[in-house]
Each structure stands twice: as C-alpha cells, then as structure tokens.
Computed example of a mutant assay.
Amino acid sequence: MDGLDLLSLCKINFETMFSDVFALVYLSTSLVAFDKARINELAQHASEKNKRLKISGYLCFKDGLFFQYLEGNQGNVVGLMDQIEKDSRHEVLNLIHIGNIKERKFRGWDMRYLEDGELKNMQLEDMFKWIITSMKTEIMAYESLKENIQKMIQQIVLLRRKKLIS
C-alpha cells in the first residue's frame, strides 16, 4: 500500500487538525428603524460581503436588538467586526470572542437571517431571550455567558444536521 492509499484511508480532515476558524458574537441596539424589508436588505448585503471574505454565520433581530454570530479566518472576522462597530445604524453593546474553534459550525450560511418565528419553531426563543438579556445587562460572568452562547449555537447546528432548518 503506498502513502496515498494510507492517507485516503485515514480520511484526515486538515481543516479540523489545523483550525484557522475564529468565532465571535455580538449584541447591538438599533439606532434607526428596521422593518422587515430593511432587515432582509441588510442580511442580503452581509451575505454577499461575507461570501467574499469567506465568513459564515447568522443574524437575529428582535425588539431593536441585533445578535450576530460570525466565523472564519480571524483576520477577516476581526476586520469585519471593526467595520460593523463603526456602522452608525447601531451601537454594539457587547462583544464576545468565542475564539478558535475546531471547524465551521455554519458552512454554507454566508449570513443566514434567523427570523423570530424560526427561533420559536426551533424551541430556542427562551434561550435566545435569556442570552440577549444577559448580554445587554452584563448580569452574567463572561465565561458563563460564552458557554451558554455556545450551547445555543450547538442546538442550531444539531437542527441543521437534522435538516429541520436549511
């Protein structure tokens, strides 16, 4: 058996072994009115930009608050976050660096907008509200908040794998 056959048998996932995937989440409050059309336009623009930057993630908007998860190359994600923080349409209230992760959680989602009804259907609405409140009021320690956000992200990943959301 030559070396190539051995490698193919091992099925090594180099992205997992040499992870260059960085993730963060932020919460911001809208400073301008966002109706459904404006949110969809924002999500479409973000999707196009993220595709160019090879960033994936999702966006939620509820009661004037944005919650966004971003993952990709650390330089690209941090650079995009710098631009997001300068956007005059909102004010960032809290930013949590999840850090390096083994692999992308939301491959194929350049920027998926999760509408309020979808969170309810995923049975994540209560968890989402609790995380938002915790991020907004800073009533929870950073590490505990980060851990709970990761639990919510994992729930969304599981629902994607079960093809309950696309």
Rank of each mutant, 00 (worst) to 15 (best):
M1D: 14
M1L: 15
M1R: 15
D2A: 11
D2Q: 14
G3Q: 14
L4W: 08
L4R: 10
L4T: 07
D5C: 13
S8Y: 15
L9M: 08
L9K: 12
C10N: 14
C10V: 13
I12H: 03
N13P: 13
T16Q: 11
M17C: 10
S19M: 13
A23C: 02
A23I: 00
A23D: 01
A23W: 01
V25K: 00
Y26W: 01
Y26L: 00
S28N: 07
T29S: 04
S30A: 11
S30D: 02
S30E: 04
L31N: 12
A33E: 11
D35T: 12
A37F: 06
R38N: 02
R38F: 01
R38T: 01
N40H: 14
E41L: 07
A43P: 04
A43G: 05
A43Q: 03
Q44C: 00
Q44I: 00
H45L: 01
E48C: 04
N50G: 08
K51L: 12
Y58H: 15
L59C: 05
K62R: 07
K62I: 03
G64D: 01
F66Q: 01
F67Q: 02
Q68T: 02
L70T: 06
L70V: 06
G72I: 09
G75A: 13
G75E: 15
N76M: 09
N76L: 05
V77N: 01
V78K: 05
G79N: 11
G79H: 08
G79Q: 07
L80Q: 05
I84D: 04
I84L: 06
D87H: 00
D87M: 01
S88L: 13
H90A: 02
E91N: 08
E91Q: 10
E91S: 10
V92R: 00
V92Y: 03
L93C: 01
L93Y: 01
I96H: 05
I96P: 08
I98V: 10
G99D: 03
N100G: 10
I101C: 06
R104E: 13
D110W: 01
M111F: 00
M111I: 00
R112L: 14
L114Y: 03
E115Y: 06
E115F: 05
E115R: 07
D116H: 14
G117I: 11
N121D: 09
N121Q: 09
M122Q: 01
M122N: 02
L124M: 14
E125R: 14
D126C: 10
M127F: 09
M127G: 09
K129D: 15
K129G: 07
W130Y: 13
I131E: 04
I132H: 04
T133V: 03
S134M: 08
M135R: 02
K136C: 03
K136G: 03
K136W: 10
T137R: 13
T137M: 11
I139N: 15
M140I: 03
A141K: 13
Y142L: 06
Y142E: 08
S144I: 05
L145H: 01
K146L: 07
E147R: 12
N148Y: 11
N148W: 09
I149S: 04
Q150E: 14
Q150I: 09
Q150G: 10
M152S: 10
Q154M: 09
Q154K: 11
I156H: 12
I156R: 12
I156P: 15
L159Y: 12
R160M: 07
R160G: 10
R160W: 02
R160I: 04
R161H: 11
R161C: 07
R161E: 14
K163Q: 13
L164R: 09
I165L: 02
